Amino acid sequence: MTVSHAKGFSLIELMVALLLGVVITLAATQMFAGNSRAFNLQQAQSQVQEEGTLLMRFLADDIRMAGLFGDDIAAQPGVVFAPITVGGKTLLGSGEGGSAGDSLTFTFVGDQDCLGNGASSTLIAQRYFLNNGGLYCDSSLAAAAIELLPNVEAFEVLYGIREGDETPPVISRYVTANQVGDRPVMAVKLAVLLSKEAGLPASVGETVTYRLLDQSVTRAVDSRLRRAFQRTVALRNFPWEA
């Protein structure tokens, strides 16, 4: 008669197996979390880069229209610093807003404003400004201002002015809105600070300072990814031959 002896796991072997399972699970969880953070960061970087590039391109194309006028419409200053009324609607002029961000107002003759409202060869006034963490545009053709892009933490503007009588004209220096006076504006410098949630590790008490033209913008080190964009736009309708 044959007797078979069944062998099982001892308590120590079961505990070792359980410990190994826990270690493997923790390692897999940490690897997944790390990959997830890397993916979120990469996605935020891609989105911020794309939004910043498209925004600066859009603004540059639009601002180049400043000062474009037809023969049958009285010429207006390209960049406007005082309140202006066009088509029965009054817009504030370009100005400095401190921590609230600058604003930029200009006029041109065209068929469409920054919000897609259309009219056939009419005088249009437009104003870009920062409000509640987003960049807005308002125009003489619009019923109300509309947010163009959220997560814009800063919007700074400088103006390239002509102070001499050189021919052809040259930009003497870049100044803020309250320094322009009656001097003609030949170019505009723009800077924006965009942000995006990226799940970055926060650091209590630490800050990062971003240089935007003549301003320094300080933000706490938190979970958001931030990047500054800058562009200089020459006003092509300035009388460069004068």
Rank of each mutant, 00 (worst) to 15 (best):
D138M: 00
V170F: 10
A220T: 06
R57P: 03
L141F: 12
F39Q: 15
K89Q: 11
P239I: 05
I161K: 02
M186H: 07
D71V: 09
S120N: 14
T85Q: 13
V233F: 07
L225P: 06
A6G: 05
E50L: 15
G134I: 01
T218N: 11
V16P: 11
D182Y: 04
M186W: 06
I171T: 13
P83L: 03
G21Q: 11
Q126T: 10
D113P: 05
G134L: 04
R127T: 01
A187K: 02
L141D: 04
A66H: 02
P239G: 12
Y128N: 07
D111M: 13
D62G: 08
N35V: 03
S99E: 12
N35P: 07
V79T: 01
Q112S: 14
A75K: 03
G134Y: 00
N237D: 09
T25L: 13
G133F: 09
V170W: 01
S139V: 04
T209S: 15
E206A: 15
Y128R: 07
L148V: 01
A75R: 08
N117Y: 13
F238E: 04
R162D: 08
S46I: 02
Q215C: 05
I84Y: 00
D62L: 12
L20V: 11
F58C: 10
A177L: 00
V217K: 13
A119K: 12
Q126W: 04
T232L: 04
V188G: 05
E50Q: 15
V185A: 02
G116I: 10
L141A: 08
L68W: 04
Y174I: 05
F155W: 05
R226H: 11
L20K: 08
V221F: 10
E156N: 09
L225E: 03
V217F: 15
S223N: 11
L213T: 03
A82S: 15
L26M: 15
P168Y: 09
E163A: 14
Q230C: 08
A44F: 08
V79F: 00
S99T: 10
G118P: 03
R231T: 13
S94W: 00
D61M: 08
S99R: 12
M1W: 07
L123W: 09
A82L: 11
V3A: 15
F32K: 13
A142I: 03
R219Q: 14
S103P: 02
L123G: 11
S4Y: 08
A125N: 03
P168I: 06
T232H: 02
A143C: 07
S46H: 14
V185K: 00
V22A: 15
V48S: 04
N132P: 07
I84E: 00
V180S: 00
G70M: 08
R219C: 07
V152H: 01
V23C: 14
L14R: 10
K189A: 10
E156K: 02
G116V: 09
S216C: 11
L158G: 00
Q43L: 09
A177T: 00
G8W: 04
F81T: 01
R226L: 11
L55Q: 07
I171E: 11
A220E: 11
V185C: 04
N151E: 14
V170N: 11
F9A: 15
R219F: 14
K196H: 14
K189G: 05
F69H: 10
R219P: 04
S139L: 07
T105L: 00
M65P: 01
G160W: 00
L148S: 02
A6I: 02
M15R: 08
M186T: 05
N117K: 13
D182K: 04
L158V: 02
V80D: 01
G88M: 08
N131A: 14
